[in-house]
Design a protein around this nucleic acid. Structure first.
Lengths: 151, 151
DNA sequence: CAAAGATAGTTAGGCAACCTAACTACCCCG
DNA sequence: CGGGGTAGTTAGGTTGCCTAACTATCTTTG
């Protein structure tokens, strides 16, 4: 608790300094594990997001995932080419936008990834003792908040 | 606690599924904030690592930071060009390796970044309520462990 | 109701951080 | 002193991200 003597600002600063390298390193590993025959962590995240909001549009999804529209457009193109999601013609009468939905094979790929236990992050989590995992579970809310995740 | 009914494996799996998107999104933001006139989060992390182990070599640093040697080599080159660190001639008699040390201006840049409070992560942390920050503080150890950080 | 402006999505061009393979230069051991 | 290992770099490619600029389609409004 020595840090609190310096006031909340120093406290936050120290926490940020501790979190930054850990987060950078973890995400490096996370992005690295592109299973040759499965979904990358990013793909899985995007498919999950689409599954959660069937019929979402590219722009809306970009905003949810906090990327630019062109970036999301490219991801969608890739995922569509892989057959993991489909574009439905306009849900409204607006001919500019499509509704994105996960395809049957996308859902299958997602389930397969979830069933398989050879994932880097899962392996790391499994290696921790239960108290450490509980601490992470408690931190999940705040982390999501920092990430700016909306329902 | 419903998840625990499915056993520890499902538990870990659910935690991983929750953490993955949050971590990916946070790191996206983190990597984005390249302050035009200061250190990027990556640069700050690397300089700190070098400062913590004066005289470290490129390979050793690569291993510590969990990147390939060429990747680290390139970072070092960039940081050296920016004047933030220096290579000392061999600390031993081994002419293959150099000892890396942070320069005066590197240390100054690091201090300046720490003093400035306009950092993305710090701002996000400051916006959380104290309990959430405490949860993150508790999670810092486990996160560092996942990241494979060594002393 | 047509022109002007706003919005959905794409294309084009670039950058940063990563990787593997292959190379140079050096060390050390038998 | 020759051969195998190690430190570091070079070369070449991938991924994920960005901004600017464009097309096509609404929507507003004078």
């Amino acid at each position: 608790m020595t840090t609190t003597l310096l006031g909340p600002a120093a406290d936050v600063s120290a926490l940020a300094d501790g979190l930054r390298p850990a987060l950078l390193r973890i995400s490096r590993q996370l992005r690295r594990e592109a299973q040759p025959l499965g979904l990358s962590p990013l793909d899985a995240t995007l498919l999950t997001a689409v599954a959660k909001r069937e019929g979402v549009g590219v722009s809306e999804l970009a905003e949810l995932e906090q990327t630019s529209r062109p970036t999301m457009s490219a991801h969608i193109k890739r995922l569509e080419a892989a057959g993991w999601l489909k574009r439905l013609p306009p849900p409204s009468n607006d001919k500019r936008r499509f509704g994105l939905v996960i395809s049957a094979s996308g859902r299958k790929a997602l389930d397969a990834v979830r069933r398989r236990r050879n994932d880097w992050l899962e392996a790391r989590l499994a290696a921790l003792d239960p108290a450490a995992r509980e601490a992470l579970r408690q931190a999940l809310g705040p982390l999501s908040q920092i990430a700016g995740e909306r329902a």
